[in-house]
Amino acid sequence: MRHFVAVAVLALAATGLARADDVGQVKVAKGTVHVERDGQRLPAAVGMRIRQSDTLITGADGSAGVTFSDNSLLSTGPNSVLVVEHYAFNSTTHAGTFDASLKKGTLAVVSGKIVKQSPGAMRVRTPAAVMGVRGTEFLVQVDEPAK
């Protein structure tokens, strides 16, 4: 038995690429895509882990898709700025909260287990409004203000 526990622990260690504060993963990155984290601008590629407080930024030629740990899917189109404001998910109880904020651009949302467990536990903010998500799929577009 001890041997099998050791194997399980090793197996977990081997997947150590995933950290406890990773909340999602970039699955699609086309054109120019960056993640702003702790004041740094990091180029985003497929496989990159997303954390709470990250800002996903796409250029004029860019689009990106992220799968979150509760199976929520988010994607942004060109010229978009999306902030993962707050994310919490308990994989045992499926309780959690998800607050995202689209500053500009386009966003597609497919809600996951958080919303399935507690409708309304996911909110998407825009400069003018806040969306309470009861499920499951919707699109958002925020134009830049007229100058």
């Binding site: 500009k104 400069p127 799929e137 919707f138 699109l139 958002v140 134009d143 830049e144 203000p145 007229a146």
Partner: peptide
């Protein structure tokens, strides 16, 4: 200036 751009939200079927 008007600091809010236009916004659109669309519900789509899964």
């Amino acid at each position: 200036p008007n600091r809010l751009g236009d916004e659109l939200v669309v519900l789509v079927p899964s």
